[in-house]
Simulated scan of single mutants.
Amino acid sequence: MGQILTVRSRGIDDVERVWRQFVPGARLERADPRDISFSWSSIEMPHLSVVSYELGASVHSSVHVDEQLMACRVVGDDLRIEAGGRSIDPRRPWAASDSTTEAHWTGSARVRALVFDRSDAERVARIATGDDRLVLRRLDPAPRDRDAATQWERSFAHVSSSLATVHDDEILAAELHRHALLTTLSTFSTPYLDAVERARQRTAAPRTVRRAIAFMEEHAREPLTLEDIAAASGISSRGLQHAFRRALDTTPTEYLRRVRLSGAHHELRVGTAVSVADVARRWGFSSASRFARYHRDHYGQNPAQVARMF
Protein backbone atom coordinates (compact mmCIF):
# COMPACT_ATOMS: atom_id res chain seq x y z
CA MET A 1 0.00 0.00 0.00
CA GLY A 2 2.71 2.48 0.99
CA GLN A 3 5.76 3.25 -1.14
CA ILE A 4 9.04 3.80 0.70
CA LEU A 5 11.76 5.87 -0.93
CA THR A 6 15.29 6.42 0.35
CA VAL A 7 17.92 8.50 -1.44
CA ARG A 8 21.55 9.24 -0.60
CA SER A 9 23.34 11.69 -2.86
CA ARG A 10 25.97 14.40 -3.11
CA GLY A 11 24.39 16.07 -6.14
CA ILE A 12 22.38 19.26 -5.72
CA ASP A 13 20.17 18.42 -8.71
CA ASP A 14 18.87 15.33 -6.90
CA VAL A 15 17.45 17.48 -4.12
CA GLU A 16 14.99 19.36 -6.30
CA ARG A 17 14.24 16.34 -8.48
CA VAL A 18 13.20 14.18 -5.53
CA TRP A 19 11.34 16.96 -3.69
CA ARG A 20 9.29 17.80 -6.77
CA GLN A 21 8.06 14.21 -7.02
CA PHE A 22 6.06 14.97 -3.89
CA VAL A 23 5.52 18.75 -4.14
CA PRO A 24 5.61 19.92 -7.77
CA GLY A 25 5.77 23.56 -6.63
CA ALA A 26 9.05 23.10 -4.72
CA ARG A 27 12.06 25.04 -6.02
CA LEU A 28 15.72 25.46 -5.11
CA GLU A 29 16.20 29.16 -5.82
CA ARG A 30 19.85 29.14 -4.74
CA ALA A 31 22.12 26.50 -3.28
CA ASP A 32 25.83 26.30 -2.61
CA PRO A 33 26.97 23.27 -4.66
CA ARG A 34 30.09 22.72 -2.53
CA ASP A 35 30.15 19.82 -0.05
CA ILE A 36 26.57 18.76 -0.71
CA SER A 37 25.16 15.89 1.33
CA PHE A 38 21.56 14.79 0.84
CA SER A 39 19.77 12.06 2.77
CA TRP A 40 16.07 11.48 2.01
CA SER A 41 13.44 9.13 3.46
CA SER A 42 9.73 9.14 2.64
CA ILE A 43 6.60 7.03 2.77
CA GLU A 44 4.02 7.73 0.08
CA MET A 45 0.45 6.67 0.85
CA PRO A 46 -2.74 7.35 -1.09
CA HIS A 47 -3.41 11.06 -0.36
CA LEU A 48 -0.52 11.42 2.14
CA SER A 49 3.27 11.60 1.96
CA VAL A 50 5.49 11.60 5.05
CA VAL A 51 8.88 13.12 4.31
CA SER A 52 12.12 13.38 6.29
CA TYR A 53 15.41 14.58 4.85
CA GLU A 54 18.72 16.16 5.77
CA LEU A 55 20.49 18.55 3.42
CA GLY A 56 24.02 19.74 4.00
CA ALA A 57 24.18 22.94 1.96
CA SER A 58 23.45 26.65 2.23
CA VAL A 59 20.04 26.98 0.62
CA HIS A 60 17.32 29.40 -0.43
CA SER A 61 14.24 27.35 -1.33
CA SER A 62 10.59 28.07 -2.07
CA VAL A 63 7.40 26.06 -2.18
CA HIS A 64 3.96 26.81 -3.55
CA VAL A 65 1.23 24.20 -3.25
CA ASP A 66 -2.01 24.22 -5.20
CA GLU A 67 -3.69 20.81 -5.11
CA GLN A 68 -1.99 19.93 -1.83
CA LEU A 69 -1.70 20.95 1.81
CA MET A 70 1.69 20.79 3.47
CA ALA A 71 2.89 21.17 7.04
CA CYS A 72 6.64 21.36 7.57
CA ARG A 73 9.27 21.75 10.28
CA VAL A 74 12.81 22.80 9.42
CA VAL A 75 15.68 22.69 11.91
CA GLY A 76 18.83 24.41 10.68
CA ASP A 77 21.53 27.01 11.12
CA ASP A 78 20.72 30.68 10.54
CA LEU A 79 17.20 29.66 9.54
CA ARG A 80 14.59 32.09 8.19
CA ILE A 81 11.05 31.23 7.07
CA GLU A 82 8.78 33.65 5.19
CA ALA A 83 5.23 33.02 3.98
CA GLY A 84 3.48 35.57 1.81
CA GLY A 85 6.07 38.14 2.84
CA ARG A 86 5.47 37.42 6.53
CA SER A 87 8.20 36.16 8.84
CA ILE A 88 7.40 32.85 10.58
CA ASP A 89 8.95 31.64 13.83
CA PRO A 90 11.54 29.10 12.59
CA ARG A 91 11.37 27.18 15.88
CA ARG A 92 7.88 25.93 15.05
CA PRO A 93 6.20 24.05 12.19
CA TRP A 94 4.54 26.02 9.43
CA ALA A 95 1.81 25.34 6.87
CA ALA A 96 1.82 25.97 3.13
CA SER A 97 -1.42 26.24 1.20
CA ASP A 98 -2.03 29.12 -1.21
CA SER A 99 0.88 31.54 -0.77
CA THR A 100 4.55 30.93 -1.54
CA THR A 101 6.72 30.00 1.42
CA GLU A 102 10.47 30.59 1.37
CA ALA A 103 13.16 29.04 3.55
CA HIS A 104 16.77 30.19 3.94
CA TRP A 105 19.50 28.44 5.88
CA THR A 106 23.26 28.07 5.95
CA GLY A 107 25.29 24.96 6.53
CA SER A 108 22.70 22.20 6.93
CA ALA A 109 19.09 21.54 7.85
CA ARG A 110 16.76 18.71 8.81
CA VAL A 111 13.29 18.85 7.24
CA ARG A 112 10.14 16.96 8.25
CA ALA A 113 6.90 17.35 6.30
CA LEU A 114 3.40 15.98 5.87
CA VAL A 115 1.93 16.47 2.40
CA PHE A 116 -1.81 15.87 1.90
CA ASP A 117 -3.96 15.74 -1.21
CA ARG A 118 -6.23 18.77 -0.81
CA SER A 119 -9.41 17.28 -2.27
CA ASP A 120 -9.19 14.20 -0.04
CA ALA A 121 -8.42 16.37 2.98
CA GLU A 122 -11.53 18.44 2.26
CA ARG A 123 -13.60 15.25 1.97
CA VAL A 124 -12.48 14.06 5.40
CA ALA A 125 -12.86 17.52 6.95
CA ARG A 126 -16.39 17.88 5.57
CA ILE A 127 -17.47 14.57 7.04
CA ALA A 128 -15.80 15.35 10.36
CA THR A 129 -17.54 18.70 10.72
CA GLY A 130 -20.80 18.10 8.87
CA ASP A 131 -20.09 21.15 6.69
CA ASP A 132 -20.50 20.05 3.07
CA ARG A 133 -19.26 23.42 1.79
CA LEU A 134 -15.98 23.47 3.68
CA VAL A 135 -12.98 24.50 1.54
CA LEU A 136 -9.44 24.25 2.90
CA ARG A 137 -8.04 27.56 1.76
CA ARG A 138 -6.62 30.53 3.69
CA LEU A 139 -4.58 28.45 6.14
CA ASP A 140 -2.59 30.58 8.54
CA PRO A 141 1.04 29.49 8.01
CA ALA A 142 1.90 29.88 11.71
CA PRO A 143 0.63 27.45 14.37
CA ARG A 144 -2.08 28.71 16.75
CA ASP A 145 0.15 28.49 19.82
CA ARG A 146 3.11 26.67 21.32
CA ASP A 147 1.03 23.73 22.56
CA ALA A 148 -0.45 23.19 19.09
CA ALA A 149 3.04 23.28 17.57
CA THR A 150 4.29 20.74 20.11
CA GLN A 151 1.35 18.47 19.41
CA TRP A 152 2.10 18.55 15.67
CA GLU A 153 5.73 17.58 16.34
CA ARG A 154 4.60 14.64 18.47
CA SER A 155 2.04 13.61 15.88
CA PHE A 156 4.65 13.64 13.10
CA ALA A 157 7.01 11.47 15.17
CA HIS A 158 4.22 9.00 15.95
CA VAL A 159 2.88 8.80 12.40
CA SER A 160 6.27 8.52 10.70
CA SER A 161 7.60 5.84 13.05
CA SER A 162 4.33 3.85 12.97
CA LEU A 163 3.95 3.95 9.19
CA ALA A 164 7.48 2.66 8.81
CA THR A 165 6.23 -0.68 10.15
CA VAL A 166 2.51 -0.77 9.24
CA HIS A 167 2.36 1.08 5.90
CA ASP A 168 1.02 -2.06 4.18
CA ASP A 169 -1.80 -2.49 6.72
CA GLU A 170 -4.84 -0.66 5.33
CA ILE A 171 -6.70 -0.36 8.63
CA LEU A 172 -3.81 1.01 10.64
CA ALA A 173 -2.53 3.21 7.82
CA ALA A 174 -5.99 4.78 7.44
CA GLU A 175 -6.13 5.57 11.16
CA LEU A 176 -2.66 7.13 11.07
CA HIS A 177 -3.57 9.18 7.99
CA ARG A 178 -6.70 10.53 9.70
CA HIS A 179 -4.74 11.34 12.85
CA ALA A 180 -2.05 13.19 10.89
CA LEU A 181 -4.59 15.21 8.89
CA LEU A 182 -6.87 16.26 11.75
CA THR A 183 -3.90 17.10 13.98
CA THR A 184 -2.48 19.28 11.19
CA LEU A 185 -5.82 21.00 10.57
CA SER A 186 -6.09 21.68 14.32
CA THR A 187 -2.54 23.01 14.64
CA PHE A 188 -3.15 26.02 12.39
CA SER A 189 -6.04 28.46 12.12
CA THR A 190 -8.03 26.75 9.37
CA PRO A 191 -11.60 26.67 8.01
CA TYR A 192 -11.76 23.20 9.60
CA LEU A 193 -11.45 24.70 13.08
CA ASP A 194 -14.04 27.34 12.22
CA ALA A 195 -16.45 24.63 11.10
CA VAL A 196 -15.84 22.60 14.27
CA GLU A 197 -16.72 25.65 16.33
CA ARG A 198 -19.94 26.12 14.37
CA ALA A 199 -20.94 22.49 14.59
CA ARG A 200 -23.26 22.06 17.52
CA GLN A 201 -25.18 18.96 16.63
CA ARG A 202 -26.55 17.76 19.92
CA THR A 203 -29.58 15.76 18.77
CA ALA A 204 -29.63 12.49 16.89
CA ALA A 205 -32.28 9.79 16.75
CA PRO A 206 -31.37 6.39 18.21
CA ARG A 207 -31.84 5.12 14.64
CA THR A 208 -28.61 6.93 13.75
CA VAL A 209 -26.74 4.95 16.40
CA ARG A 210 -28.26 1.67 15.21
CA ARG A 211 -27.27 2.49 11.64
CA ALA A 212 -23.69 3.19 12.78
CA ILE A 213 -23.53 -0.08 14.72
CA ALA A 214 -24.74 -2.09 11.75
CA PHE A 215 -22.14 -0.43 9.54
CA MET A 216 -19.34 -1.17 12.03
CA GLU A 217 -20.32 -4.82 12.32
CA GLU A 218 -20.41 -5.25 8.56
CA HIS A 219 -17.10 -3.47 7.87
CA ALA A 220 -15.09 -4.07 11.07
CA ARG A 221 -12.14 -5.68 9.29
CA GLU A 222 -11.84 -2.87 6.75
CA PRO A 223 -9.78 0.35 7.18
CA LEU A 224 -12.67 2.13 8.91
CA THR A 225 -12.44 5.69 10.21
CA LEU A 226 -14.80 7.78 12.31
CA GLU A 227 -15.65 9.80 9.19
CA ASP A 228 -16.60 6.62 7.31
CA ILE A 229 -19.00 5.60 10.08
CA ALA A 230 -20.48 9.09 10.30
CA ALA A 231 -21.02 9.27 6.54
CA ALA A 232 -22.78 5.89 6.53
CA SER A 233 -24.97 7.10 9.42
CA GLY A 234 -25.94 10.38 7.76
CA ILE A 235 -24.48 12.63 10.45
CA SER A 236 -21.24 14.48 11.18
CA SER A 237 -18.58 12.70 13.21
CA ARG A 238 -19.06 15.23 15.99
CA GLY A 239 -22.80 14.59 16.06
CA LEU A 240 -22.24 10.82 16.02
CA GLN A 241 -19.95 11.06 19.02
CA HIS A 242 -22.62 12.95 20.98
CA ALA A 243 -25.29 10.43 19.90
CA PHE A 244 -23.21 7.46 21.11
CA ARG A 245 -22.41 9.21 24.37
CA ARG A 246 -26.10 9.84 25.06
CA ALA A 247 -27.40 6.45 23.93
CA LEU A 248 -24.64 4.06 25.03
CA ASP A 249 -22.34 6.13 27.27
CA THR A 250 -19.40 5.34 24.99
CA THR A 251 -17.80 6.66 21.82
CA PRO A 252 -18.02 5.26 18.28
CA THR A 253 -14.30 4.48 18.38
CA GLU A 254 -14.64 2.54 21.63
CA TYR A 255 -17.63 0.67 20.27
CA LEU A 256 -15.74 -0.23 17.09
CA ARG A 257 -12.94 -1.60 19.22
CA ARG A 258 -15.45 -3.84 21.02
CA VAL A 259 -16.81 -5.10 17.70
CA ARG A 260 -13.30 -5.90 16.50
CA LEU A 261 -12.44 -7.49 19.85
CA SER A 262 -15.51 -9.71 19.58
CA GLY A 263 -14.55 -10.76 16.05
CA ALA A 264 -11.01 -11.57 17.12
CA HIS A 265 -12.25 -13.54 20.13
CA HIS A 266 -14.51 -15.61 17.88
CA GLU A 267 -11.63 -16.30 15.49
CA LEU A 268 -9.49 -17.52 18.38
CA ARG A 269 -12.29 -19.81 19.55
CA VAL A 270 -12.87 -21.47 16.19
CA GLY A 271 -9.15 -22.12 15.84
CA THR A 272 -8.56 -20.57 12.41
CA ALA A 273 -5.75 -18.29 13.61
CA VAL A 274 -2.08 -18.80 12.86
CA SER A 275 -1.15 -16.88 16.00
CA VAL A 276 -2.58 -14.38 18.47
CA ALA A 277 -0.49 -11.62 16.88
CA ASP A 278 -1.93 -12.61 13.50
CA VAL A 279 -5.48 -12.25 14.79
CA ALA A 280 -4.74 -8.95 16.49
CA ARG A 281 -3.33 -7.46 13.32
CA ARG A 282 -6.15 -8.81 11.15
CA TRP A 283 -8.71 -7.07 13.36
CA GLY A 284 -6.94 -3.71 13.45
CA PHE A 285 -4.90 -3.93 16.67
CA SER A 286 -1.40 -2.58 16.04
CA SER A 287 0.00 -4.01 19.27
CA ALA A 288 -0.44 -7.65 20.27
CA SER A 289 0.23 -6.77 23.91
CA ARG A 290 -2.44 -4.04 23.84
CA PHE A 291 -4.86 -6.48 22.20
CA ALA A 292 -4.11 -9.00 24.95
CA ARG A 293 -4.85 -6.39 27.61
CA TYR A 294 -8.18 -5.43 25.99
CA HIS A 295 -9.09 -9.11 25.64
CA ARG A 296 -8.17 -9.87 29.24
CA ASP A 297 -10.16 -6.89 30.55
CA HIS A 298 -13.23 -7.86 28.51
CA TYR A 299 -13.20 -11.67 28.65
CA GLY A 300 -11.15 -12.34 31.78
CA GLN A 301 -8.63 -14.49 29.88
CA ASN A 302 -5.52 -13.99 27.83
CA PRO A 303 -6.18 -14.59 24.12
CA ALA A 304 -3.55 -17.35 24.08
CA GLN A 305 -5.56 -19.24 26.71
CA VAL A 306 -8.69 -19.08 24.55
CA ALA A 307 -6.77 -20.32 21.50
CA ARG A 308 -5.42 -23.32 23.46
CA MET A 309 -8.86 -24.21 24.88
CA PHE A 310 -10.38 -24.62 21.46
Rank of each mutant, 00 (worst) to 15 (best):
A174S: 15
A264F: 08
H266E: 15
G239H: 04
S237W: 01
E122D: 11
R293N: 10
R17P: 04
R126I: 04
A128V: 08
D77L: 08
A113S: 15
R257H: 06
R211V: 07
I235Y: 11
A195M: 09
T190D: 05
P223L: 08
G263L: 15
G271T: 14
Y294M: 06
M309F: 10
S161Q: 14
A204I: 03
L261I: 13
F22S: 07
P206F: 15
R34L: 07
A164R: 13
E218W: 04
M1K: 06
R282T: 08
L172N: 02
V159K: 01
V51P: 01
R20M: 10
A230G: 09
R137S: 14
R154W: 05
H266R: 14
V51N: 00
P90R: 05
H158E: 12
R221G: 10
S160F: 08
I88P: 00
V15D: 00
E44W: 03
F188R: 01
H179L: 08
G239K: 01
N302H: 14
D168W: 06
R245G: 15
Y299G: 02
H158Y: 12
S162Q: 12
I127H: 10
T208C: 04
V209A: 07
H242P: 02
I127W: 13
L268T: 08
Q151I: 12
S155Y: 01
F156P: 00
S161N: 13
R281H: 07
Q68F: 03
S97I: 04
G76N: 07
I127V: 09
E218A: 14
T250H: 10
S155H: 02
L134D: 02
L114R: 01
A230I: 05
R293G: 05
Y299C: 03
V50G: 01
T251Q: 11
Y53W: 05
A103R: 03
S87V: 14
S155W: 01
V111T: 12
A174Y: 00
S41W: 06
R211N: 06
A95Q: 03
E170I: 05
I4P: 04
S289K: 12
H104N: 10
R210A: 13
W19I: 03
S97G: 08
R27P: 01
R138T: 12
R123F: 03
V50P: 00
E218M: 06
T129E: 06
I12G: 03
L182Q: 03
V75D: 11
E44A: 15
P90H: 07
D131S: 11
V159E: 00
R137I: 12
E82Y: 07
L224G: 01
S155K: 00
V59N: 02
R8M: 04
L79P: 02
S289E: 15
L182P: 02
S39N: 11
R138S: 11
A273V: 08
R200I: 13
E153L: 08
